[in-house]
């Protein structure tokens, strides 16, 4: 019974520009707090000691996050669409792999936030009747995303069931 069968990663990586996107995102998330402490450190001399430590303490985890998370995510985030199913992997420390048969897909949409637009990236969201959340493929090239949506839309129209 112990065959060594395992789930292979989906075929396609997301766009390499996604690394830049995630780095910018993590920077926006990590910079404000140490920046505030840094300004206080520079501007209020009597509290130098405390604010120096606070600046360092808030800066280090942020830097670590911005340095590690994007490339790690890039290794994990992958996607694949066959004629039968959508298959996507996401996350970095906590990872999620999802498979949805095309016959159960209800809607397919794209979402492009301002940051994603800067990097010419797009996210595709595939929803089903389940309340447990949609399959999201984030950070792929926006042209590719449009093609993908068109492809998925064709298949989901071809299946007449109510998909529950």
């Amino acid at each position: 019974m112990e065959e060594d069968v395992r789930l292979r990663p989906p075929r396609h990586r997301v766009s390499s520009r996604a690394v830049g996107w995630w780095t910018l995102q993590s920077a926006l998330f990590a910079v404000p707090l140490p920046l505030t402490f840094g300004i206080l450190w520079a501007s209020i001399p009597p509290t130098r000691e405390i604010f120096m430590w606070l600046t360092l303490a808030s800066l280090l985890p942020g830097l670590l996050y911005a340095a590690v998370m994007p490339s790690w995510r890039y290794r994990v985030h992958r996607w694949e669409v066959t004629d039968e199913a959508v298959y996507a992997a996401s996350g970095w420390l906590w990872q999620q792999w999802r498979v949805v048969p095309l016959s159960r897909v209800q809607t397919v949409d794209t979402l492009r936030g301002p940051l994603q637009q800067m990097f010419k990236l797009s996210g595709v969201t595939v929803t089903t009747a389940s309340a447990s959340g949609a399959v999201k493929i984030k950070g792929i090239d926006h042209q590719l995303a449009d093609d993908l949506v068109a492809h998925l839309a064709r298949f989901t129209q071809a299946t007449p069931e109510d998909a529950t």
């Binding site: 789930l7 420390l93 906590w94 990872q95 792999w97 999802r98 048969p101």
Partner: peptide, 10 residues
Amino acid sequence: IIGWKITRTP
């Protein structure tokens, strides 16, 4: 069942 969601923590 309309799909699988596999999750793994570190």
